[in-house]
Amino acid sequence: MDDILEILANDARVTPHEIAKMTRRKAADIKKAIKKYEDDGTIIKYKAVLDLDKTRGQSSFVRALIEVNITPQKDVGFDNVAERIYSFTEVTSCYLVSGAYDLLVIVEGANIHTVSNFVASKLSSMEGVQRTSTHFLLKKYKEDGQILKKVNSRKRLAISY
């Protein structure tokens, strides 16, 4: 992966000027490269990674992983049904997977009822959907490579040879 992408993927706040220093390139070139990545969709967007457990007081929500079995359609396979599903704003992620079911759909809602309602009224009744199995998420330990528990700071000496 390009250095620029790796740096930004780890911390999107690093400025082009700083990236230029880290990679010993010109800031103008870095800006140009970033613009190109933004334009061609390599960089989709910049956002903060939140520990949503900590935002509970502000807005509670629940998350569920839903296994969905669907009937593939001629020519388009799973894509049409998948599109109908992922277009709902409640769906935060949607993956086609191998194995006992076809789509893994991640849904978020304000509470258990909104999610259940979504599954009952929107998802399971959709044409092409044969069966769903919903797992409510109880606790998050690690997400996107990030361990969510705040680890105690290490006991490294502040100064040593």
């Binding site: 490294r156 000496l157 502040a158 100064i159 040593s160 040879y161």
Partner: peptide, 10 residues
């Protein structure tokens, strides 16, 4: 203290 005085990996 912000330490830049450490002789081991972080």
């Amino acid at each position: 203290v912000i330490s830049l005085g450490v002789g081991e990996p972080d």
